[in-house]
């Protein structure tokens, strides 16, 4: 899922400085699960904003709402009434949600309350790690199910760099070397010979290098 975290309070307060009444909009999907933007966080953040502004002698009215999912046009309806009342919306969905709010409510500023950080999963409760960089051309079948793009700091495709040490990446002893993991996994699978096949330079055109990506499924279009 998409993993995000709340922006520092200072930044949020600065963004909100010009406004007197806002909608704080959470999202019920990924950011609920990674505990950054669900209904609970909406309540807590709303209180924090009100408190800070009250203390600064510049009170703000904060409407609270958690939408089913901020990344579907249909769900935008849920915010329609509230949006009429406010000066701006602070969205604590991922960047997709913020943009859909901006598009739907064209005349009101949509502000991001989160930093959308990566695609990953909770390794343990409260510890989230990155797993996929959405490169658009998956190579997991060649690398023992461990992504060299997202998990190798240098996104190397054909074995480790010279800095791999005791299974750790040279950028930090807390980061596992993806290529050590790939080697271990391939060994366990009895597929070490995979390593002899050179993976040719990757066509990054499927990734961000080809500009914004788009998928059109004619069969699905209504």
């Amino acid at each position: 899922m998409i993993i995000a975290e709340q922006k520092p309070m200072e930044e949020i307060l600065e963004m909100l400085a010009p406004y007197k009444k806002i909608l704080l909009a959470g999202c019920g999907a990924c950011v609920t699960v990674c505990q950054a933007g669900g209904e609970k966080e909406v309540g807590v953040l709303a209180s924090q904003i009100r408190l800070a502004r009250k203390d600064a002698g510049n009170p703000i009215e904060v409407l609270e709402m958690t939408m089913t999912r901020q990344c579907e046009p249909e769900f935008m309806e849920e915010a329609e009434d509230a949006m009429k009342e406010v000066d701006a919306v602070l969205s604590i969905a991922c960047g997709i949600g913020v943009q859909l709010m901006a598009k739907t409510f064209f005349d009101k500023p949509a502000l991001p309350g989160l930093n959308t950080t990566f695609l990953g999963f909770p390794e343990e409760h409260g510890v989230f790690t990155e797993r996929c960089a959405a490169c658009g051309n998956c190579v997991l079948h060649l690398t023992g199910g461990i992504c060299p793009i997202a998990r190798c700091s240098k996104s190397l495709l054909n074995g480790p760099c010279g800095g791999s040490q005791d299974g750790k990446c040279e950028i930090s002893p807390d980061v596992e070397c993806a290529w050590q993991l790939i080697y271990d996994r391939l060994k366990a699978l009895g597929q070490l010979e995979n390593l002899e096949n050179i993976i040719p330079p990757k066509k990054w055109i499927t990734s961000r290098d080809g500009g914004p990506r788009k998928i059109v499924r004619e069969d699905l279009r209504i």
């Binding site: 609970k40 309540g43 807590v44 709303a46 209180s47 924090q48 009100r50 408190l51």
Partner: peptide
């Protein structure tokens, strides 16, 4: 005692 309760009380 959830974060919501604590913040609400201060709020």
């Amino acid at each position: 005692a959830e974060t919501g309760y604590i913040m609400k009380a201060l709020d």
